[in-house]
Simulated scan of single mutants.
Amino acid sequence: MTKTALIVIDVQRGFDSPAWGRRDNPACEANVRALLDGWRDAGQPVVLVRHDSTTPGSPLAPGQPGNAFKPELDGVRPDLLVPKSAHSAFHGHVDLHAWLTDNGIRDIVVCGIQTNRCVETTSRVGGDLGYRVRVALDATHTFDERGPDGALVTAEEFARATAANLHGHFAEVTTTAAVLAALAPDGS
């Protein structure tokens, strides 16, 4: 079986704050947990990424309760923890690219929060670095936001745009079930 790293992006309590607004995909965290369980059962490497915000007052700042991982990650002992203050996990405070290279890993699966920000950016950089990137879109979520013209862009619209941006260019956009099926001994 090919060694594939699961990269779990920013599944942190601070994203539960109502200040973020309406989110999509209430199944995100359960799907992330299903991926984590599948990875551990298959003996594959897990990377947890934590956003350590440098923005004053951010719930994701180190020392704030929101910086902690959500309960769905309780008990997970990652093979690598990547703290970051940028959007891409490849620009974190630990060199993810070097770690993946040193461990002979060329395939990655990305999931987590936010679909159109850190998940998309990490996937784009990973694709540019030559990794085979798969994004389990149903194991991500994001939030509604207003565009520069004041018009509302829904979280679902962001997720759809991210899928179109990534698929076939930087990554394969897929589902949790398909990724887990590929982990099975008879999978790809």
Rank of each mutant, 00 (worst) to 15 (best):
K3H: 02
K3I: 05
K3D: 09
T4N: 12
T4E: 14
A5M: 03
I7V: 15
I9T: 11
D10A: 04
R13M: 06
R13W: 01
R13Q: 13
G14H: 08
F15K: 07
D16M: 11
W20V: 10
R22C: 03
R22S: 13
R22Q: 15
R22M: 09
R23H: 14
N25G: 09
P26A: 12
A27L: 10
E29M: 01
E29S: 09
E29Q: 04
N31F: 13
N31Q: 14
V32N: 04
R33G: 06
L35F: 11
W39G: 05
W39Q: 01
R40P: 01
D41K: 07
G43M: 07
G43W: 08
Q44W: 00
P45I: 03
V46M: 00
L48P: 09
R50S: 14
S53F: 13
T54Y: 00
T55K: 15
P56I: 06
G57M: 02
S58E: 02
P59M: 00
L60V: 06
L60W: 04
A61N: 02
P62L: 10
G63N: 07
Q64L: 07
P65L: 05
A68M: 07
F69M: 10
K70Q: 13
P71D: 15
P78G: 10
P78R: 10
D79K: 01
L81S: 13
P83N: 06
K84S: 03
S85A: 13
S85L: 02
S85E: 02
A86Q: 15
H87M: 11
H87V: 04
H87A: 14
S88N: 11
S88W: 03
F90Q: 06
G92P: 08
L96M: 10
L96C: 09
H97V: 02
W99N: 08
T101Q: 14
D102S: 15
D102C: 02
N103A: 08
G104V: 12
R106F: 05
V109R: 11
V110T: 13
V110M: 03
